[in-house]
């Protein structure tokens, strides 16, 4: 009973926030609706006993990523309302929801048709004994079977940081002038 109530409440948060992201024309409101959706997903994670992922969801997504969005919005001053009338591709605005309904129908039908099919459970099983069982099991999986992928993510993050610094940097005027004087084609 309580699970059903939690599921419905969190699902209302998720769907309401998602609709807010798509429908609010002000980007700041869209970002705040995104927080609502991400919190709803975190509640779902808790109710599915994925405690570590719920914490990471709140810290990384609702904390870092949405704040990054808000920073960029404020930095660039693009927090003005999107004019919905100037539309270069007029038909796309009406075809878009159609595609959405199509995706929902397709995936929803597949899920409903396939419900209750045979379930092959893993030999390991999910550890639920103890208050930190989920974290321990996830860590054991991450640092044994997936340790190479885990190390590769650090390379990915370094590349992302360096690339972003290069992209966002203003071209150095003094350096460019010096290069032109020296006849080097940058």
């Amino acid at each position: 009973m309580i699970e059903v109530i939690v599921f419905i409440a969190a699902s209302l948060m998720v769907i309401g926030g998602a609709l807010g992201v798509v429908l609010r024309s002000n980007p700041v409101h869209a970002a705040l609706s995104l927080v609502l959706t991400l919190f709803g997903v975190a509640v779902h994670f808790v109710s599915m006993e994925a405690h570590f992922l719920a914490a990471v969801q709140v810290i990384v997504y609702a904390g870092a990523i949405v704040v990054l969005f808000l920073f960029v919005i404020m930095l660039l001053g693009v927090d003005k309302v999107e004019d919905l009338r100037t539309e270069p591709m007029m038909r796309q605005r009406y075809l878009g929801p159609l595609v959405g309904v199509g995706v929902l129908g397709l995936v929803g039908t597949a899920v409903i048709v396939a419900r209750g099919r045979t379930i092959v459970q893993s030999v390991e099983g999910l550890d639920t004994v103890g208050h930190d069982a989920n974290v321990k099991q996830l860590a054991r999986s991450l640092f044994s079977d997936y340790v190479f992928a885990f190390e590769l993510t650090s390379v990915l993050l370094v590349i992302a940081v360096v690339g972003t610094v290069l992209l966002a940097r203003r071209p150095n005027k003094g350096l460019q002038a010096a290069r032109e004087k020296a006849g080097v084609n940058a």
Partner: peptide
């Protein structure tokens, strides 16, 4: 949960197609 995920995916897909602000 899978139906909820399908709904969320469909809403996001619609948003990418409909909105023109790169941030959104």
């Amino acid at each position: 949960y899978l139906l909820l995920a399908a709904a969320l995916f469909a809403i996001g897909c619609t948003g990418v197609l409909v909105r023109r602000n790169p941030l959104v």
